[in-house]
Write a protein that binds this DNA or RNA. Structure first.
Lengths: 311, 311
DNA sequence: TTGTAAGCGTTATCAA
DNA sequence: TTGATAACGCTTACAA
């Protein structure tokens, strides 16, 4: 039945006929117990809602189901304890492998985890010691591209609304940002930088802070789309016309970016493909589908829309 | 260990000490095989991405995990075949129960399904024959509330952009809409109705169609937020000021509604709570947590923001 | 209150 | 190529 052993055509048919007649359905649980494979992969994300994780789950589920594996989900809410509990929960469920999108847990914890029995893939996080287990975006390049897009339009005074500095992706994006400034001979002005929270409120608070700083600027680069949206709202409420008086660029290219007005120019984060790739990593490494190609780091790219104007 | 049998304190302690010392972890799969319970519930949604399903999953996961059950996910993509396959898949995975958000599959199919072995809850769908298995929103009331909000502001000529007529929720919303018109002595004008697709494009196409119809109107009611957003974009591109020249109201209260400008007045769809309730239904009926209260139909309510003005 | 043993429905091994 | 049988790690019923 499982087409592994060598069976004659005749017996095969006999077996299949019998299956049909009896309405036989293999018991996946008994199979799991006997084979020591649950055929499930556990997925831990920060939040189940939100534009980002949905796309990721979507990519993972499609890839997994194509191979008859199932996805078990859990939320970590960006809190260390909850994330650890979630991981524990999934392991106790006997998942054959885990896909983790965790933020609060430490690098060391993850490095230890990888040494364990169950295979692990990390999404949106790069830890050199376990580089092969990481599927990540080149955030530095993304930060660079965003700044370049602004600088190429002639802006010389550009503000930056960053993500939380402790988050790796936020600091990488800022690093790329600075690199681009240097390349264009624009000196980086710390007074024109605000540390946001990756939420809408960080964007509005950020723009307010920047405006109050009395430093002139003609463009603001936001480390993600939600903050860009917040900044846009704040600008509108204060009668600053975008992009005429102020250019704005975001990061992530979440669906929202096309809905707001003006349509937001941003950096594309191919999260769905990365989810798919994480699933593929597992298919290859855990389920031995050796023919699959796996790519560990993805490149962001510029999506040009309407929120930037030449200066 | 499972604290069901009567065991003396002493033995209990002895057992737990032994567990700690040996680092014993029960094997969930063996438990499942022996007890004929997988402790999993399968969840089928149309799409994993999108603002709607994420909230729903979020509600379900939280409720389930509190009881040590896990959620297995699958996507149905609003296509009959895929939905059926998804259900098959989840059943073959031996889920103890299923939560379904399906659109393409017929009522009869679902009624038959409910007669089967595995317990089923339907979200966002009401089928009288299996009313107890349905967790749904009073869409008619929602349609009524939306229209009422507009009519109370003095609008007499109101256009309507509907969802696909074959979808139950769309026709219910329209029914409520008509009821409100009647109550306010406004005659329903079929020429001011457009059948959209619940997507952004349906909203822009819809507004274009309505404008071309040469029938005057001062407000447009959209059967969901995405279409409202599309209509708003179209209006802006054609220099129609919202809400000054045209009032718009949406439905669903997805996160987007707060992000767009002007902030969208809409009808709240408590999808997260409904997801939670679906999970609770299962906890109660399948896992015998009899103390839980279950509510089958939810009431929508008006969320007032900035897209409506008195006429 | 404690101990014992027969399943649960497969996979995998080995002999025929 | 086929058939028989011992795991897999639990739950549960029953005996002690």
């Amino acid at each position: 039945m499982n087409k592994n052993a060598k069976v004659s055509e005749k017996t095969l048919k006999k077996v299949q006929d019998a299956m049909d007649q009896l309405g036989y359905r293999p018991n996946a649980i008994a199979q799991s117990l006997a084979s020591n494979r649950s055929n499930s992969v556990g997925i831990l994300v920060s939040e189940l809602h939100g534009p980002f994780y949905g796309s990721m789950l979507s990519g993972i589920e499609a890839e997994l189901r194509g191979s008859q594996k199932h996805a078990i989900i859990a939320a970590g809410h960006s809190e260390e304890e909850t994330e650890k509990e979630g991981i524990e929960f999934l392991i106790s469920r006997r998942c054959d492998a885990l896909i983790l999108h965790v933020e609060a847990v430490s690098d060391e914890y993850l490095v230890d985890l990888v040494k364990n029995e169950v295979p692990i893939v990390l999404i949106n996080r790069f830890i050199p010691a376990i580089a092969d287990n990481c599927i990540s975006l080149n955030n530095e390049l993304g930060g660079y591209l965003a700044a370049k897009a602004i600088l190429e339009q002639g802006h010389k005074e550009v503000a930056y609304i960053s993500g939380p500095n402790w988050k790796m992706d936020a600091s990488d994006r800022l690093k790329g940002h600075k690199k681009a400034l240097q390349e264009f001979n624009v000196t980086y002005n710390p007074k024109l930088t605000y540390e946001g929270d990756y939420q809408e409120v960080g964007g509005s608070d950020g723009l307010e802070y920047l405006l109050n700083s009395k430093q002139p600027f003609t463009a603001v680069i936001c480390a993600n789309d939600e903050m860009a949206s917040g900044a846009m709202t704040f600008a509108r409420e204060h009668r600053i016309s975008i992009p005429k008086e102020l250019s704005i660029i975001g990061f992530d290219n979440i669906i929202l970016a096309q809905y707001i007005y003006p349509k937001l120019t941003t950096i594309d984060y191919p999260i769905k493909q990365m989810g798919q790739m994480a699933a593929r990593w597992i298919l290859k490494n855990t389920f031995k589908q050796t023919d699959l190609e796996v790519k560990n780091v993805f490149e962001p790219k510029l999506i040009t829309r309407d929120s930037i104007l030449a200066h």
